[in-house]
Design a protein around this nucleic acid. Structure first.
Lengths: 219, 219, 219, 219
DNA sequence: GATGAATGAGTTTTCATTCAT
DNA sequence: AATGAATGAAAACTCATTCAT
């Protein structure tokens, strides 16, 4: 079964099931924190139990397996991140205006940045697991790619028509943009998670500039 | 282990080691393959032993602990990656000859690409472990940054003087360039390791173009 | 639990119990099905609860312990099997007639066969548990033996007087007959429970013949 | 995979592997005793470990799983019991010499009885597990049936020719004989394992008589 | 009466590490 | 040097039972 399907199943199930117990919330919370910090396989269920102030059995009563707990943590993040993106972006970014491509990119970055600021721990978990779970990777990347294409494809065509963008196939453009933004997020949230963000504004600006113009001097 | 120590310890260790026996080579080889695929904590010493055709005790006789085996695997890679870079680059890349910055970047990419092609498995191990070992990260990135600064600082200054580069502080420039290249390498070697490289040339070209000019249309 | 007590306790228990609620019936029904298939210790109370459409707590509210649920399942079977036998047999089999011993045995077999057909699941439970519960065994067999002796003792004496039966002590005769019949029932209901009974008549006939005349040729 | 195949695999493997350790022997010994008494699922590996004077890990190092330990216990019994039977019987029972069918049956009984006396504990384990493992049952009974047919088929034909046996199809005859003998063995070794065998001779005699002539009076 | 969340003791299993040979 | 049997601590997981609602 494809991984995205599993995630959907979990989200569906968790929507069906009555509201979470206080203990369940504590469990998920602790699991996220520990998985984020030490990674899934370096975290034991007994640690999670202790941190949650819960008996170990309780974890298994609710989630069945440790693996399933992980998915229950990841699933909502993955499934809800995409719709959120589309909706939010449409509100925040209006490519029809006489905004420039830079503005468009900046909005995109700010939108995702805010999303990740609100979900930084889960993001760390996901990134770490990405390295070990082929299905996750193989499902996720194409999925994201498609969602983004659907969303920014039109915008890109507009900007291309205006002559603002290089004549590069859309999917290549998207991949470059996303991987550049993505890698900055990974650096910021996963590799140096304790960095304080004094100069966030400057970094956004500089990232936008880099994506749009590269490192070359603009005359 | 203190922050400063890990790289030094690694280098020290690799200097100590007398020449490896055939069994040791098999062990290291198997460990690399398994760590690369499943990660350090998801690999058991018994798996390594089996894959090496060696008794489990033998591993511990040589490396004392599993942790230590990991270091023995990583050490040469890290130790040699830096000097190699400097030396190789100096030979291959001659900023004076290559008139344009694009050529410089391309040489840099090709050099590192070749290095990683020859060490792809270890690269995967290192990247995966990077996420779990703060010391590794905290030592490694500044270290690489410094090495690179020392090396390409002059070149950058030259190209800046020629007006080819944007007026951005060197360390920022370096970070952008390296993280963009690095993330491509991670995608290529770690996230999609089975990708065949039919269009390698085109990808290099496109990466160079992106780094230098971004996604914008040029004049 | 002492040897004498278990059967008595069971009978006592089943007398105490007020009439069962619908839920209780579902519970007992599910428990029987599951115990019959997988055995007592391989069946969890949560399985029973799920199959019954009842909360796990409900089981314990009614039966206190899992063990007690088992007894509640077994009790009526054991309690009723004996009197039923005696009563039914007296009606169905009339040894006073000029029936031959074969007819007597056949009636006995048919009677018990019908009883077990109506209680096949519980029979499977009892047989399986018999192997693990010494008290059950130590109480049950002598009990059955005594009941049967009381019942067919007279008949046997009659047939002996008529010269139809070998000169073997009654208890030995009874043991042979019962264990032969019993083992056929175990084969039929426990070891091959999915066998369809097309040739039931022929099997009864052949069993009767074997009990009475063995495998030898009758001149 | 069919159960007999699994057993064969295990026997094959255990023949390949070097001789058993002293600890391994202790483990198997303790496992047999405990499985025989309390059954497989009511016996914990920690009990086995304690009784063997061995660390719990040792059990799993050698047998991998508890299930596999069970099979390692059962396998030799099942696989070797059949050949032994054939070989022993051919030596002990010579249908040509023993004039009467009774003698043949008696030899058969004595042979199997001796075999089970030497393996009474394992027999108890096997019988108990038979109830819970369909594959075991479905493989074993036909297997035994075939082996026995092959072996005593000729003898039966001889005795039939001599007019000593009823005109019943061989497979039915075999089934009756074997199930009668088998059920006596189950009673003796499994259901009343602590019975002392003072009157063994008399019981054999009586069993033979019953199989051959049933309960009827012989004029 | 019924529920189902919670428990915690116990079970199977894994695994890095030790050590006698 | 090499082996591999043995260990024991810790891991994931199960489950009968309790109890507040």
């Amino acid at each position: 079964m494809s991984s995205i399907n599993i995630l959907e199943a979990i989200v569906a199930k968790s929507k069906l099931s009555k509201k979470e117990t206080a203990k369940q919330q504590k469990i998920v919370e602790s699991a996220i924190a520990l998985f984020a910090e030490k990674g899934y396989s370096n975290t034991s269920t007994s640690e999670i139990a202790k941190k949650s102030g819960v008996a170990e059995g309780t974890i298994f009563r609710h989630y069945g397996t440790k693996e399933n707990l992980l998915l229950s943590v990841i699933a909502p993040f993955l499934k809800e991140s995409m719709p959120d993106l589309a909706k939010d972006l449409r509100e925040e970014v209006n490519p029809d205006n006489n905004t420039r491509f830079e503005d468009f990119i900046e909005s995109l970055i700010r939108n995702r940045l805010n999303f990740l600021k609100a979900n930084r721990e889960i993001f760390r978990v996901v990134i770490k697991e990405l390295l070990y779970r082929d299905e996750l990777r193989y499902d996720l990347f194409p999925h994201i790619g498609k969602e983004m294409s659907a969303f920014i494809g039109n915008a890109i065509n507009d900007y291309k028509a205006r002559g603002e963008l290089a004549d590069i196939p859309n999917d290549q453009l998207i991949r470059m943009i996303l991987s550049t933004i993505g890698s900055q997020f990974v650096v910021r949230f996963v590799l140096s998670p304790e960095t304080n963000a004094d100069n966030e504004e400057r970094e956004i600006e500089s990232l936008v500039r880099f994506i749009v113009y590269g490192v070359s001097a603009r005359d």
